[in-house]
Every structure is written in structure tokens, then in C-alpha cells.
Computed example of a mutant assay.
Amino acid sequence: MEWLLLLFFMPFVLTMMFFNWLEKKFFSFRDREKLGEGEILLEGKKYFEAQLFFSEKLKYFPKSSKAYFLRGKCQFHLENYYSALFDFEQSISFDNTIGELYVWKGKTLYKLEEFDKAFLEFDKADWYYRSENAVALRWRGMARYCVGQVENAIYDFTRAVELGDEDAAHILRTKFEYIKKK
């Protein structure tokens, strides 16, 4: 009896799994196809137009992590930090495996002078990059310096310099004057 029941429900379960997989692939393909124009606007520093473009796309693809991420970058450049933070959090809720996303969220929190939270985001980014991204290390060092962890900040800057980051080298040479001005 159990085998008969299993044989009856197994095709249904397999069909549902297949359509779920197909839907994920279709949405990611559609995102790549439809967001290219907005990325060109973003690269051309037309932030307001790009922000409008991504807002329009989010009406049709409300679960697009990439669209939220790119709109967040536009909001950041337009200095709408709270809107950028919202977009980055939405993007993380749909895909939490993008290291660059944590860097941008940390930058936003840093601009809002929430250094403890910014440090945590940069730390997550560093974890995803496996300590091989100089930008994440430099920003984490800046946040660490602002929360009073000077020795650890120096280590992060030194590691970033080893990876080729000239900005971190400048910060170390000027004895943190760059950070104090911000």
C-alpha cells in the first residue's frame, strides 16, 4: 500500500521540483537580459536615471536581488543613504551570498556614522572574500579605527596594502589623517 502511495505522489513532487528549478533559472536569465541598460546608466554616472530605471524594473521583478542592489548603489551616489540601506537589505533578503553587497551596505552605514554596524558588514564581506579583497579590508580597517580598534585597523590596512591597495597605503603613511577628515 505504501509503495502505491509513493508511486502516486512521486511524479507530482518531481514535477514541482522541476518547475521550481526552472523558475529560478528563468528569473536569473531575465534579470541579466533586462538590467543591462540600467547598468550602462550607472556606469555613465547618470544615477537619477538609473535609479528610475531600476525602480521601474522592480515593479515587474519584485524579487530581483540584483535590481535592488543596483538601485541601492544609485541611491548611495545620490546620497539617499537610508533608501540605499533599505535597498541593500532587500537585496540581501533575496540573495545573501554577494560579498560586494556587504561592502556597499557597510559603506552606507559608515556614511551614516554607525561604525559598529558598518564594521560588522565589512567583516561579513571579508568572510565572503576570504580576506582577498583589498577594498573590504580597507573599509573594515576604517570602521575599526572609528570604533577604537587601532591595532586591528593597522593589520587590515597592512593586509590591504599587501593586496595592492594604494588608498590603504596612503592612510597608513598619513597616520590616519584621511579618516579623521571624514
Rank of each mutant, 00 (worst) to 15 (best):
K57Q: 14
L52K: 15
A125G: 07
N96L: 09
E121Y: 00
I40R: 15
V13P: 09
A168H: 04
F19Y: 11
Y178D: 11
L58F: 06
S91T: 09
R159H: 12
F86D: 03
V147N: 15
Y60Q: 12
Y145H: 07
L78R: 03
E89A: 07
N133A: 04
G38W: 09
V161E: 00
E89K: 11
S131G: 09
D123Q: 11
D87K: 05
A134P: 01
K66G: 01
L70D: 00
D165Y: 04
R140M: 12
S55A: 11
P62M: 06
L172E: 03
N20A: 09
S64F: 00
G72N: 08
T108H: 03
D156W: 09
K63D: 10
V161A: 03
I40G: 12
V161M: 02
A50R: 03
Y68T: 07
G36Q: 12
A118I: 00
N133S: 07
L172P: 01
E56P: 05
A118G: 01
H77G: 12
F27H: 10
F119T: 00
F12G: 08
E39C: 10
F9L: 12
A67L: 06
E2A: 13
P62K: 04
T15M: 09
Q149P: 13
E113L: 03
L101K: 01
Q149V: 10
R144K: 15
A67F: 04
Y145N: 02
V135L: 13
G164E: 12
A160W: 05
S65R: 06
I179K: 00
V147P: 14
L42A: 05
A50P: 09
K117L: 10
